[in-house]
Amino acid sequence: MIDPRILVLIPARMAATRLPGKPLADIAGLPMIVHVLRRAEAAGIGRVAVATDTPEIASVVTAHGGEAVMTSPTHPSGSDRIHEAMQKLDPDGKAEIVVNLQGDFPTITIDNIREVLPPLQDPAVDIATLASQIHTEEEDLAPSVVKAIGTSLGGKRMRALYFTRATAPTGDGPRYHHIGLYAYRRAALERYVSLPPSPLELQEKLEQLRALEAGMRIDFTIVDTVPRGVDTPADLETARSILSKS
Protein backbone atom coordinates (compact mmCIF):
# COMPACT_ATOMS: atom_id res chain seq x y z
CA MET A 1 0.00 0.00 0.00
CA ILE A 2 1.57 3.27 -1.14
CA ASP A 3 1.61 5.87 1.66
CA PRO A 4 -0.08 9.06 0.38
CA ARG A 5 1.85 11.07 2.97
CA ILE A 6 5.16 10.39 1.17
CA LEU A 7 6.32 11.71 -2.20
CA VAL A 8 9.50 10.26 -3.74
CA LEU A 9 10.81 12.74 -6.30
CA ILE A 10 13.74 12.13 -8.65
CA PRO A 11 15.23 15.33 -10.12
CA ALA A 12 16.79 14.82 -13.54
CA ARG A 13 18.22 17.19 -16.15
CA MET A 14 20.30 16.78 -19.28
CA ALA A 15 22.78 19.59 -18.72
CA ALA A 16 25.25 17.81 -16.42
CA THR A 17 28.68 19.42 -16.85
CA ARG A 18 30.86 16.31 -16.76
CA LEU A 19 28.48 13.84 -18.42
CA PRO A 20 25.86 15.60 -20.58
CA GLY A 21 22.71 13.61 -21.22
CA LYS A 22 23.45 11.13 -18.45
CA PRO A 23 19.82 10.45 -17.38
CA LEU A 24 19.27 8.74 -20.73
CA ALA A 25 22.61 6.90 -20.82
CA ASP A 26 22.07 3.21 -21.53
CA ILE A 27 22.87 0.84 -18.66
CA ALA A 28 22.15 -2.85 -19.24
CA GLY A 29 19.47 -2.03 -21.80
CA LEU A 30 17.61 0.70 -19.89
CA PRO A 31 18.16 4.45 -19.51
CA MET A 32 19.78 5.33 -16.20
CA ILE A 33 16.76 7.32 -15.03
CA VAL A 34 14.57 4.24 -15.49
CA HIS A 35 16.86 2.17 -13.24
CA VAL A 36 16.46 4.79 -10.48
CA LEU A 37 12.70 4.97 -11.10
CA ARG A 38 12.36 1.17 -10.84
CA ARG A 39 14.21 1.06 -7.53
CA ALA A 40 12.15 3.88 -6.08
CA GLU A 41 8.94 2.14 -7.14
CA ALA A 42 10.14 -1.19 -5.73
CA ALA A 43 10.86 0.45 -2.34
CA GLY A 44 7.11 0.98 -2.06
CA ILE A 45 7.26 3.89 0.36
CA GLY A 46 5.20 6.47 -1.54
CA ARG A 47 4.17 7.99 -4.84
CA VAL A 48 7.15 8.23 -7.22
CA ALA A 49 7.71 10.82 -9.93
CA VAL A 50 10.61 12.17 -11.98
CA ALA A 51 10.97 15.96 -11.89
CA THR A 52 12.64 17.23 -15.05
CA ASP A 53 13.02 20.23 -17.33
CA THR A 54 13.55 18.06 -20.42
CA PRO A 55 10.65 16.69 -22.50
CA GLU A 56 12.86 13.83 -23.73
CA ILE A 57 13.41 12.60 -20.17
CA ALA A 58 9.71 12.91 -19.38
CA SER A 59 8.83 10.91 -22.51
CA VAL A 60 11.22 8.09 -21.60
CA VAL A 61 9.86 7.94 -18.05
CA THR A 62 6.22 7.77 -19.16
CA ALA A 63 7.08 5.25 -21.89
CA HIS A 64 8.36 2.96 -19.13
CA GLY A 65 5.20 3.39 -17.06
CA GLY A 66 6.48 6.06 -14.69
CA GLU A 67 5.16 9.47 -13.76
CA ALA A 68 6.97 12.64 -14.83
CA VAL A 69 6.39 16.29 -13.98
CA MET A 70 7.84 19.19 -15.95
CA THR A 71 9.68 21.86 -13.97
CA SER A 72 11.51 25.09 -14.73
CA PRO A 73 14.92 24.90 -16.45
CA THR A 74 16.25 27.70 -14.23
CA HIS A 75 16.35 25.90 -10.87
CA PRO A 76 19.76 26.21 -9.18
CA SER A 77 19.46 22.86 -7.38
CA GLY A 78 17.62 19.58 -7.20
CA SER A 79 15.95 20.76 -4.00
CA ASP A 80 14.38 23.69 -5.81
CA ARG A 81 13.25 21.35 -8.61
CA ILE A 82 11.55 18.88 -6.24
CA HIS A 83 9.90 21.76 -4.41
CA GLU A 84 8.21 22.89 -7.64
CA ALA A 85 7.30 19.28 -8.45
CA MET A 86 5.78 18.84 -4.99
CA GLN A 87 3.63 21.93 -5.46
CA LYS A 88 2.40 20.70 -8.84
CA LEU A 89 1.76 17.08 -7.83
CA ASP A 90 0.34 17.78 -4.37
CA PRO A 91 -1.23 21.26 -4.35
CA ASP A 92 -3.53 20.30 -1.48
CA GLY A 93 -0.61 19.56 0.84
CA LYS A 94 -1.44 15.93 1.62
CA ALA A 95 2.18 14.80 1.35
CA GLU A 96 3.96 15.31 4.66
CA ILE A 97 7.36 13.92 3.64
CA VAL A 98 9.28 14.52 0.41
CA VAL A 99 12.16 12.21 -0.51
CA ASN A 100 14.81 13.64 -2.85
CA LEU A 101 16.38 10.69 -4.70
CA GLN A 102 19.12 11.72 -7.10
CA GLY A 103 18.60 10.55 -10.66
CA ASP A 104 22.24 9.45 -10.99
CA PHE A 105 22.08 6.67 -8.36
CA PRO A 106 21.24 3.66 -10.58
CA THR A 107 22.80 1.19 -8.13
CA ILE A 108 21.02 2.43 -5.01
CA THR A 109 19.38 -0.39 -3.08
CA ILE A 110 15.73 -0.62 -2.17
CA ASP A 111 16.79 -0.93 1.48
CA ASN A 112 18.76 2.34 1.29
CA ILE A 113 15.69 4.17 0.04
CA ARG A 114 13.62 2.78 2.89
CA GLU A 115 16.33 3.46 5.49
CA VAL A 116 16.20 7.24 4.97
CA LEU A 117 12.77 7.53 6.62
CA PRO A 118 13.06 6.33 10.27
CA PRO A 119 14.73 9.47 11.72
CA LEU A 120 11.61 11.45 10.80
CA GLN A 121 9.66 9.44 13.37
CA ASP A 122 11.26 11.90 15.81
CA PRO A 123 9.29 15.17 15.51
CA ALA A 124 12.44 17.17 16.32
CA VAL A 125 14.12 16.08 13.06
CA ASP A 126 13.63 18.29 9.99
CA ILE A 127 15.64 16.36 7.41
CA ALA A 128 16.88 12.75 7.29
CA THR A 129 19.74 11.38 5.22
CA LEU A 130 22.23 8.48 5.06
CA ALA A 131 25.93 7.81 5.56
CA SER A 132 28.25 4.81 5.47
CA GLN A 133 31.48 4.20 7.38
CA ILE A 134 34.67 4.90 5.43
CA HIS A 135 37.09 1.99 5.21
CA THR A 136 39.77 3.15 2.74
CA GLU A 137 42.37 5.91 2.79
CA GLU A 138 41.42 6.88 -0.76
CA GLU A 139 37.83 7.56 0.32
CA ASP A 140 39.07 9.29 3.46
CA LEU A 141 41.22 11.78 1.57
CA ALA A 142 39.05 12.45 -1.50
CA PRO A 143 37.34 15.88 -1.52
CA SER A 144 34.65 14.34 -3.74
CA VAL A 145 33.65 12.15 -0.78
CA VAL A 146 31.58 14.30 1.57
CA LYS A 147 32.08 13.46 5.23
CA ALA A 148 29.14 13.51 7.63
CA ILE A 149 30.17 14.44 11.17
CA GLY A 150 27.70 13.66 13.89
CA THR A 151 27.01 12.60 17.43
CA SER A 152 25.65 9.12 18.08
CA LEU A 153 22.05 8.74 19.16
CA GLY A 154 22.44 4.99 19.66
CA GLY A 155 22.18 2.16 17.20
CA LYS A 156 22.76 3.28 13.61
CA ARG A 157 21.46 6.82 14.01
CA MET A 158 23.44 10.03 14.39
CA ARG A 159 22.60 13.71 14.64
CA ALA A 160 24.51 15.72 12.04
CA LEU A 161 26.81 18.43 13.35
CA TYR A 162 28.57 19.27 10.08
CA PHE A 163 29.33 18.11 6.55
CA THR A 164 32.67 18.72 4.84
CA ARG A 165 34.87 17.71 1.92
CA ALA A 166 37.88 17.67 4.25
CA THR A 167 39.09 14.57 6.07
CA ALA A 168 37.21 14.99 9.33
CA PRO A 169 37.01 14.57 12.22
CA THR A 170 40.72 14.22 12.90
CA GLY A 171 42.17 11.61 15.24
CA ASP A 172 41.32 7.98 15.73
CA GLY A 173 37.77 6.78 15.21
CA PRO A 174 35.28 6.25 12.43
CA ARG A 175 34.56 8.68 9.62
CA TYR A 176 31.41 8.59 7.52
CA HIS A 177 30.75 9.02 3.81
CA HIS A 178 27.60 11.06 3.28
CA ILE A 179 25.06 9.67 0.80
CA GLY A 180 23.02 12.35 -0.97
CA LEU A 181 19.57 10.92 -0.41
CA TYR A 182 17.27 13.15 1.66
CA ALA A 183 13.84 12.93 3.25
CA TYR A 184 12.38 16.34 4.13
CA ARG A 185 9.39 17.23 6.20
CA ARG A 186 7.26 19.32 3.87
CA ALA A 187 7.65 22.39 6.07
CA ALA A 188 11.42 21.89 6.16
CA LEU A 189 11.64 21.78 2.36
CA GLU A 190 9.47 24.89 2.12
CA ARG A 191 11.75 26.71 4.54
CA TYR A 192 14.95 25.43 2.96
CA VAL A 193 14.17 26.71 -0.54
CA SER A 194 13.11 30.09 0.86
CA LEU A 195 16.56 30.65 2.40
CA PRO A 196 19.46 32.28 0.53
CA PRO A 197 22.64 30.22 0.07
CA SER A 198 24.62 30.34 3.32
CA PRO A 199 28.31 31.25 3.76
CA LEU A 200 29.47 27.72 4.60
CA GLU A 201 27.32 26.26 1.82
CA LEU A 202 29.11 28.50 -0.67
CA GLN A 203 32.54 27.82 0.81
CA GLU A 204 32.20 24.01 0.93
CA LYS A 205 29.84 23.80 -2.07
CA LEU A 206 27.47 21.65 0.02
CA GLU A 207 23.78 22.59 0.01
CA GLN A 208 22.94 20.77 3.24
CA LEU A 209 25.01 23.28 5.21
CA ARG A 210 22.34 25.91 4.46
CA ALA A 211 19.93 23.90 6.60
CA LEU A 212 22.40 23.46 9.46
CA GLU A 213 23.36 27.13 9.44
CA ALA A 214 19.67 28.00 9.68
CA GLY A 215 19.34 25.84 12.81
CA MET A 216 17.50 22.97 11.12
CA ARG A 217 18.12 19.49 12.45
CA ILE A 218 19.48 16.76 10.18
CA ASP A 219 19.81 13.16 11.42
CA PHE A 220 21.44 10.39 9.43
CA THR A 221 21.26 6.62 9.45
CA ILE A 222 24.42 4.53 9.05
CA VAL A 223 24.01 2.01 6.24
CA ASP A 224 26.30 -0.74 4.96
CA THR A 225 26.65 0.26 1.30
CA VAL A 226 27.28 3.44 -0.69
CA PRO A 227 25.42 3.70 -4.01
CA ARG A 228 27.70 4.59 -6.89
CA GLY A 229 26.80 8.02 -8.21
CA VAL A 230 27.36 8.54 -11.94
CA ASP A 231 29.21 11.80 -12.63
CA THR A 232 31.87 10.81 -15.18
CA PRO A 233 32.26 8.38 -18.11
CA ALA A 234 34.27 6.10 -15.79
CA ASP A 235 31.41 6.08 -13.26
CA LEU A 236 29.02 5.16 -16.05
CA GLU A 237 31.16 2.18 -17.04
CA THR A 238 31.28 1.05 -13.40
CA ALA A 239 27.48 1.21 -13.15
CA ARG A 240 27.17 -0.74 -16.41
CA SER A 241 29.48 -3.42 -15.04
CA ILE A 242 27.56 -3.70 -11.76
CA LEU A 243 24.09 -3.77 -13.30
CA SER A 244 24.96 -6.11 -16.17
CA LYS A 245 25.66 -8.76 -13.51
CA SER A 246 22.49 -8.17 -11.47
Rank of each mutant, 00 (worst) to 15 (best):
6 I>A: 05
7 L>H: 11
7 L>M: 12
12 A>R: 08
17 T>I: 07
18 R>M: 11
20 P>Y: 07
22 K>F: 12
25 A>H: 14
39 R>N: 03
46 G>Q: 09
47 R>F: 14
47 R>T: 06
56 E>N: 01
57 I>R: 01
60 V>S: 10
62 T>F: 05
64 H>L: 02
67 E>N: 10
75 H>Q: 06
77 S>T: 15
79 S>F: 15
81 R>C: 09
86 M>K: 13
88 K>G: 00
91 P>H: 04
93 G>L: 08
95 A>N: 06
106 P>M: 06
108 I>C: 10
126 D>P: 08
127 I>N: 04
129 T>D: 00
130 L>A: 07
132 S>I: 02
133 Q>I: 12
137 E>S: 04
150 G>I: 11
152 S>A: 15
153 L>R: 15
155 G>V: 03
155 G>Y: 03
156 K>P: 06
161 L>N: 12
162 Y>A: 05
165 R>M: 05
167 T>C: 06
171 G>H: 13
172 D>E: 11
177 H>V: 04
177 H>L: 13
180 G>D: 15
181 L>R: 06
191 R>K: 15
194 S>Q: 07
194 S>G: 11
195 L>S: 09
199 P>W: 10
205 K>M: 09
206 L>C: 11
207 E>Q: 11
208 Q>E: 00
210 R>S: 03
212 L>E: 00
213 E>H: 07
214 A>P: 07
215 G>H: 10
230 V>G: 01
231 D>C: 03
232 T>F: 07
236 L>K: 10
244 S>Y: 11
245 K>F: 05
